[in-house]
Write a protein that binds this DNA or RNA. Structure first.
Lengths: 207, 207
DNA sequence: CCCTTAATGGGTTTCTGGTTCCGTTAAGAT
DNA sequence: ATCTTAACGGAACCAGAAACCCATTAAGGG
């Protein structure tokens, strides 16, 4: 038998109970994040709120960082539908609105901020966060590629960078200046990136 | 005698000792932030590292959030020289480099990230963070205003928004995706914002 | 259906941050 | 120089989160 890592129980017998416990704990974690934020996240409370023994929570997730990391891994697996409106303008706007929705959703927004805070000092959380965005950026980047093929944007335009550039100002407001973010900001973000992309500022040569 | 707020001792007798204690504590706080991050910041340790009684640290700053908040207030007071290169291109690039320098400076970078994490759950930290950026953005926005006067950018261009837009992608990498940020990224950020600004995407009408 | 043991859960103990108490130091006024 | 008291600091004290122990439950193989 191999060394049994004790960090991933649930691999050997992931049936009913174990899965239910995980779902309940992750759910309770999100609720707690909404209420008290990452800084106030106590394993103790999460266990109580999930209706689960606290020993189990400590054993499987170790600390609050492990909790939000697993939460982010879970969310990263879920795909968000990416639109195809036919024009790059519509697609970028749709992307901005999608990001806006995530940011302003109470549970998801609280979770994102918690993971961002956790990633400050927890490499595992940072990795999970990265995986989460990597997937979304990749999915949306195809819209930019299509626009290049249609001739709407200059050849060599870096799709992933364009998508990130749309998100950046929204997250900047969310995390850095902590101002509210609304549809207007999302639209502006999309419009500005589009203007830059059309001018070739996202083409490889413009590095 | 008035209610003595106990949150601002040092107002009545700010002479030598009190000032020295504050400097030592704030200094030790930055060191600790570099080592363990905000999440690992313990009043206890800061006191020890500063060579100061821990009672004093608790009395004057209450909790880690108070510590980083005061630190940010201190940093906000210090002005960074904003360049005037003669062209908007040069000025935006200079601004991007300035932000880059702040982000990549070990102590300042750690402090910024700590305050961002703290602001997640501490309104005072959020205010201090805001004040910090408000000042810098305002100072740099004048460069954009000059460019508008020189006819380099469309009339009505929102200077503050332009400056923020330059910072946004850099902070996005720092805080959200946690990727390294270098000169190349700074230059690209400046170039892209400039392209959008020239296209009028930052002019008022372009809501 | 039964058996093995993975996985859970209640209860207790430990330990580290956080609080309070009270004596000591020295800033600033006279 | 002296006095008042703001501000500091050491040590004991307290609370709540983290770790541990061992009994209980039920997943999955036969």
């Amino acid at each position: 038998m191999e060394p049994q890592t004790h960090l991933k129980p649930g691999r050997v017998r992931p049936g009913g109970r174990t899965a239910k416990v995980r779902a309940a704990v992750l759910d309770a974690t999100q609720d707690e994040l909404v209420d008290v934020g990452f800084h106030g996240l106590a394993m103790d409370r999460v266990a109580a709120r999930a209706g689960v023994g606290k020993t189990t929570v400590y054993r499987r997730w170790r600390d609050p960082g492990g909790l939000v990391t697993d939460l982010m891994v879970e969310l990263a697996d879920q795909s968000t539908p990416h639109a195809d409106t036919g024009s790059i303008e519509g697609d970028l706007r749709a992307n901005a609105m999608s990001v806006l929705g995530a940011i302003n959703d109470q549970r998801l927004g609280a979770t994102l901020q918690a993971v961002i805070a956790a990633a400050t000092c927890d490499p595992a959380a940072a990795d999970a966060l990265n995986a989460f965005y990597l997937r979304r950026v990749k999915e949306w980047a195809t819209a930019v590629d299509r626009a290049v093929e249609r001739g709407e944007l200059p050849a060599g335009t870096d799709g992933a960078e364009v998508i990130r550039a749309v998100s950046a100002p929204l997250y900047y407001r969310l995390v850095v200046t902590r101002e509210p973010v609304d549809e207007r900001h999302a639209e502006r973000a999309a419009a500005r990136v589009l203007a830059a992309a059309r001018a070739g500022a996202f083409a490889e040569a413009a590095g």
